[in-house]
Design a protein around this nucleic acid. Structure first.
Lengths: 169, 169
DNA sequence: CTCCGGGGATTGACACGTCAACTCTGCACG
DNA sequence: CGTGCAGAGTTGACGTGTCAATCCCCGGAG
């Protein structure tokens, strides 16, 4: 590209795409969130936690392991678990084999909520996201997102970016 | 698409793209936000408000007009304006020609903050977004986002999405 | 004149995240 | 022995957003 050393500004058109991108993504996110909420009274944060616990051995994880999986700050997890515990979706118990450390268990209510929410949620992803795009558009999006991610990663200090190992949304 | 009438679930690959898309976008958003914050002590919400006011006649807008422009719920705007007023970025005065209604003015500090934040912010958009993508990737992203937006719009009840006064879609 | 409805804006309760400070306990080192 | 630091979690203060209730003042019936 012919940009000199001077740090460049986005063109009008680039800015338009940027805004559309951000706003549309935001809208999509809140739509999904709303559906999940009304179908199962779960936020997407709740969902992530319940998903991780559902897949865990004996539906229990060490708090730190859970933080790993969902890619959150410990503090955020702690706050969120406190709220979820109040709603009886999970329970925390001191961890036996490690004096520090807390075991987070899925409760029956938590398991049930997750079960009820899961399928509709995945269907919503299909309806609102997959259905909207042709295969070419999906591939194009993937390519762009991958490029963005790679551009971002070197500078990566902050957020999630989990070493992906499998599963669900 | 060859999906039958049954409501479909996303495939593993589609889900992977979905997750990457959402997470990367989120990461990008917080990166930008962080830069804006450190460069000018403004959140992107602040920025939007200040931008709208900067462009307004006499750097003043009726609260309702402002809500229109930034696409927020009145309640959200009210809360945010209260916080911004506390920081002396804007000021609210009762509106003369309409007994209901409040005029929101840009203060000198607000104008100054916006001026200081604006150029670096646009540069950040260029660096973190535009620079990451080839022209083809940018076009691909635009196409996908446009498709998503169009898919979403019919169902539009909730958020922003400007009611484009003339034409539809 | 009084009562009512409705638009504009504010408020309060609450959920969520972030940052920084703090607790608690085990272990290494002098 | 201490002293103290490091790891696991928690807590508090605060900014932000949502929803629902409320306030305020208008203008039009009765």
């Amino acid at each position: 590209m012919a940009q000199g050393r001077r740090r460049a500004m986005p063109s009008r058109e680039q800015l338009r795409i940027w805004r559309d991108y951000i706003e549309t993504t935001e809208l999509l996110r809140t739509r999904l969130e709303g559906r999940l909420q009304s179908e199962s009274s779960l936020s997407s944060a709740d969902y992530r936690v319940l998903l991780a616990l559902s897949e865990a051995d004996r539906t229990t994880l060490r708090s730190s392991a859970l933080a790993e999986r969902v890619g959150w700050q410990r503090s955020r997890l702690s706050h969120h678990l406190a709220r979820m515990e109040k709603r009886d979706l999970i329970r925390r118990t001191p961890c036996l084999d490690d004096v520090h450390g807390v075991d987070v268990h899925l409760t029956d209510l938590g398991a049930e909520s997750f079960r009820r929410g899961s399928v509709p949620h995945l269907r919503s992803v299909h309806e609102l996201f997959v259905d909207a795009l042709t295969p070419e558009q999906l591939a194009g999006l993937d390519a762009a997102v991958t490029a963005l991610r790679e551009h971002l990663d070197p500078e990566d200090t902050g957020l999630s970016r989990r070493r992906d190992t499998g599963r669900n949304s």
